[in-house]
Design a protein around this nucleic acid. Structure first.
Lengths: 214, 214
DNA sequence: TTTAACATCCCCTATTTGTGGTATTGTTTA
DNA sequence: TAAACAATACCACAAATAGGGGATGTTAAA
């Protein structure tokens, strides 16, 4: 089965050299080549690719916006970002937008073919320095991932009330929201405090958010 | 400049075959080979490696615990995890513990040399499927990363007070904590609410934690 | 079938918090 | 140097929250 590949890049030379490179592989088929991501959804519908090579810096619509809308419409398409930039922000925005790989353009020529195959086989090709950035970011965010998640045995109703509290509603507003009386809200809150071992709204919100209880 | 490499792996065959593989590279030097991470800190001091190949599953002390303590003591040593496991938990625990790369053992033979060089050059070699898991994890955690971080121009003192509130202290306790009067705390709180555009403790805590203001 | 947990509602009291002011002092900056 | 901000402190009143009860009906588990 061949790979259907599309390119978005505003640089004509880049598009042409990639086209030439892809043509050396008998099982690669370049089904689309676009200088602009303005109509990327329509373009993708037209050419129906499996894999998209996406430049980040393009006029009008950035590659990051493009990958976001493409992945929303076609989650199974794999997008490989390619750029000269490797600042943290662009890297993480791309990944969060749904890119499955991120490579620097200086590595284009020699490795692109391998990277595309790796992508197709369920891998996530990244330039070495990008991969390092990604790991560093995860290490920084480690506390966010490693949440000690006790189970406080809150009932469904109690979780609802707690969610309202975290969203900043007063007891009175929670009563309205859940169509119960103020006194019932108070009963739930008392029970929540007991179960979480807290004694105030501030502590409850803090604990709920820290331990992702809502 | 040569690479000083140490191995931790409980399987003697693995250690020997890696040793053999490394010996084919004139600039690689195997400075230590250990079947156990019990004394990993002492071992590392003794053999002084630049790079460590760490097996995950070892008796007594796991590779994850080992990398955690090694990175704590010697942050500049690069650790490459190698394992047959690729469950999410072990992958992320390893990365959070400070590993700079993570490769599956079935790819050992042919690629290990390249991976070690990549690691040494500031990259983070990962097996393709591992890289994909890492990106998926980041995408899932995207909301945690993409914090719209307004600047509310809180003064240093106001941030202190806000931190106390988030930690669940009452105004009275904050007064004691910061050695100011109760009324001053209330003044700060008023100002904080004004700047954050909130009207209650719950909202303040919620906003402060969501936007990582403390 | 008794018990336990849950959801609902009510009362009383005390404390904490929210809102509106005012005021002094020192520092920074336009 | 005047204006703006920051940190401190106080007062008064209103509203919200916290803690102690008690009560009822339902449902699910032992």
């Amino acid at each position: 089965m061949g790979y259907r590949i599309a390119i978005f890049d505003d640089n004509k030379n880049v598009r042409e050299s990639i086209s030439l490179l892809l043509s050396t592989q008998h099982d690669f088929e370049l089904v689309g080549s676009f200088s602009n991501a303005k109509d990327c959804i329509a373009d993708v519908i037209t050419c129906n690719p499996d894999i998209i090579l996406m430049d980040i810096e393009m006029p009008d619509v950035s590659g990051i916006q493009a990958v976001e809308s493409i992945k929303k419409e076609f989650p199974s398409i794999q997008v490989l970002m390619q750029t000269v930039f490797e600042d943290d922000e662009r890297v993480f925005d791309s990944i969060c937008a749904g890119a499955s790989g991120y490579i620097l353009k200086n590595q284009l020529n020699n490795k692109l073919i391998d990277f595309i195959r790796e992508l197709h086989d369920g891998g996530s090709p990244m330039s070495p320095s990008i991969a390092r950035r990604v790991l560093n970011k995860m290490q920084l965010a480690a506390p966010d991932f490693k949440v000690e998640t006790h189970n406080y045995h809150l009932s469904a109703r109690e979780k609802e009330v707690l969610a309202c509290i975290v969203n900043g509603l007063s007891h009175k507003m929670i009563a309205e929201e859940l169509s119960i009386t103020y006194e019932t809200v108070r009963s739930h809150v008392k029970k929540i405090y007991e179960k979480l071992h807290v004694v105030s709204i501030a502590q409850a919100v803090s604990k709920a958010m820290k331990e992702k209880l809502v």
